[in-house]
Design a protein around this nucleic acid. Structure first.
Lengths: 222, 222
DNA sequence: GTCTATAGACTGATAGAC
DNA sequence: GTCTATCAGTCTATAGAC
């Protein structure tokens, strides 16, 4: 890391509307529209209303941008869901319901980042990673595993309390997150989605949360 | 090389292990591994242990192959799930449970085709479609809509009978299919999966079916 | 000799990297 | 804007079945 560009990144990371964060937002949008491979650096520049030069000023390669979008998306999830997952004053059912609601909401309000994160996880880019990127990738996988564990934990807590069906927690986590993550596929944000989120977003998030809680609930004997 | 299989190729072009179907299976595998754009025709040829010539003998373009993989995958779903969806001797809960089980099983036993079908649906390739491909695409969308409707119908039937929660059927269909389709993302087929399917496949399919049925079940008042 | 299946060289366009 | 690699798609040659 001895070039001027790299140094500047450290001085003001992502400051200003024309800076690194703008490139990231533009890239998230472009990747969402066309997928990783089909998105060219020129496409990203187009969203920025700029040229390639600006993009390469902040990032060394397309893959670096992509990995950074993924990290940002997963960080947002962890930061919002983590506190609720750790709030043991809530019973397992209510805790899971709130975790699911927050997760689902982010799938919609931060659609482009979350969609990239979801699609990136399923990409097999293990090959073609340079050592530095390889380390970033390992960190992404670790973040994902820790995040999934938050859900596995609440599932097990619910089994312990008798609220949830007995089923392998790690397996139950798959359809749970699948139902929620699928939102990035079918949901189409029409306008600018702000933090507060619109009413439609809340209604959908509630429905998804009910669904996943129900999917685990123990059926009372007749 | 005078076995029946080789001879049949000449009589029925496209049949047998060296024909059109072989190209399709190879393509499904290659697309599954790297995604559509990142897969080159040479990659498909590699899986076939052949060269481009073989691939282009059966298909005019990469996109044509992709669309054909999608159609095949969706046809398999419709053919297997359709009859159960139409079997009104089964009550809504049991009908949905069986539909989900079959759907989930196909996600695993026909993993490569189903994964391509799932990923294709979310691709924005509306542009860059030639008229002939455009018609194929419209047919794919129509197949998907009809298929989703099978699930929406059983959801409404279950609401009518009082077994399922009252919720917009089309909305409820999203997490339902999301939980099931997500299987194509995390499930890794280890060996050759036959029609009968292994025990692990059955156990997973059962769990997924329980999950989605539970997600819709009405919670009895306390 | 004819026809199908396939190999493999070639080309033009695209796009990542800088 | 330039340089370069990759790749979809084309074209021709050929092997072998009948």
């Amino acid at each position: 890391m001895t070039e001027a560009g790299a140094l500047r990144q450290h001085v003001r990371p992502g400051a200003g509307p024309g800076g690194r964060q703008a490139v990231l937002e533009a890239a998230a949008l472009a990747f969402t529209r066309n997928g990783y491979t089909a998105t060219s650096i020129d496409d990203i520049a187009d969203v920025l209303v700029a040229t390639k030069g600006r993009v390469y000023h902040y990032y060394r390669s397309k893959l670096d941008i992509f990995l950074d979008v993924m990290i940002s998306g997963m960080r947002e999830l962890t930061e919002r869901v983590g506190p609720v997952a750790g709030d043991l004053r809530l019973g397992p059912t209510e805790r899971l319901r709130q975790m699911a609601r927050i997760h689902a909401t982010l799938m919609m309000t931060r659609h482009s980042f979350q969609r990239v994160a979801v699609q990136g996880i399923e990409m097999h880019l293990a090959g073609s990673l340079r050592p530095r990127q390889r380390r970033t990738w390992d960190e992404i996988i670790a973040m994902r595993d820790r995040y999934e564990q938050l859900f596995a934990d609440v599932v097990e807590a619910g089994q312990g309390s008798g609220e949830f069906r007995e089923t392998p927690a790690r397996l139950a986590t798959k359809p749970l997150l699948g139902a929620l993550n699928w939102t990035t596929i079918w949901y189409r944000p029409e306008e600018v989605q702000q933090e507060g989120a619109g009413p439609a977003v809340q209604r959908i998030a509630d429905e998804l949360a009910e669904f996943v809680v129900g999917g685990l609930r123990k059926v009372p004997d007749t």
